[in-house]
Design a protein around this nucleic acid. Structure first.
Length: 275
DNA sequence: CCATATACCTGGCAGC
DNA sequence: TGCTGCCAGGTATATG
């Protein structure tokens, strides 16, 4: 489900309510992608000191240690003063004095993993190879020269799977990859290393523009995404190609096509996007 | 090292 | 109605 905008919206809808909460108990449901890594009772009495995001991971800072959370394909977080009885897809509850942080994740590709500190091996394993954030804490776009260099260094890899890889920049998932390439006028199968510098810079700018627009609209709710208040996103109303095969492009009227790249679907406009 | 394929899991939907 | 097959927003790991 969640790409960078949905994860960031989840973070923003949660941070002010959960900071300072003190952990009382932990409830685990079915196994997630990885085990928590400690006995749940270790978390008891710890206080939440922050909620950060790195790529599509959330980092729940505690006064000792950090919980890495990932929403996988179908995860969402909620926080309520009193949580309802857990359903069959509620696999993690962090019960605090301020409310219950709950991970709902039908497919269970998500994860909650404990790390004693940011130097722990598990942090390095999960976050160590992530590329730059699309923008820094002041909202400044990521470095254009580094992006250009990363594209040039790739071999024959097509630009679309390269964007998904998260090495040149993090946060672009399957919806936004198609949307970004449409807005940049780039065919998804172009070898990344063959893009001219101006086209690479255009692409870099569209990555920032599309992702930040999506954040401003509360993310995309295609099926079931909700922020931690239960609110839906609106970016799906702005989608130009994703999921629209056979329909006319609303810029040029050309046909939108669907193809498969690296076992993932890609949508693009035959006329607007060139090799 | 690189690029590509696989594995994980459940629910919804089209087609029969 | 009920079955089957396919598809879905991610990514660590295995494989070539």
């Amino acid at each position: 489900m969640p790409e960078l905008p949905e994860v960031e919206i989840t973070r923003r809808s949660l941070v002010d309510r959960i900071v300072c909460a003190r952990v009382q108990t932990v409830r685990l449901g079915k196994p997630l992608r990885w085990p928590l890594g400690i006995q749940p009772s270790v978390l008891q009495g710890l206080r939440v000191t922050g909620l950060r995001r790195r790529g599509k991971y959330l980092l729940l800072d505690l006064d000792a240690g950090v919980l890495l959370l990932h929403l996988g394909m179908s995860g969402s977080l909620s926080f309520d003063p009193v949580a309802p009885q857990p359903g069959p897809h509620d696999h993690f509850d962090l019960v605090t004095d301020l409310g219950v942080l709950r991970l709902h994740d039908p497919r269970r590709f998500g994860a909650v993993v404990w790390a004693p500190d940011m130097e722990a091996p598990v942090v390095h394993k999960l976050l160590g190879r992530l590329g730059p954030e699309p923008w820094d804490e002041l909202g400044r776009p990521f470095d254009a020269q580094l992006f250009w260099t990363a594209l040039r260094a790739s071999r024959g890899q097509a630009i679309k799977p390269l964007l998904l890889q998260g090495r040149a920049v993090v946060g672009v998932g399957n919806i936004y990859a198609s949307e970004v390439l449409f807005r940049a006028g780039i065919h998804p199968a172009v070898p990344a290393c063959s893009l001219s510098r101006p086209r690479a810079l255009r692409l870099r700018n569209e990555v920032c523009a599309v992702l930040s627009e999506a954040v401003n609209l509360g993310g995309s709710t295609l099926r079931d995404f909700r922020d931690a208040h239960g609110a839906e996103g609106l970016f799906q109303t702005q989608v130009r190609v994703y999921g629209r095969e056979g329909q006319p492009c609303d810029v040029c009227g050309g046909k939108i096509r669907k193809t498969t790249q690296g076992q993932r679907s890609t949508w693009w406009c035959v006329a607007c996007q060139r090799r």
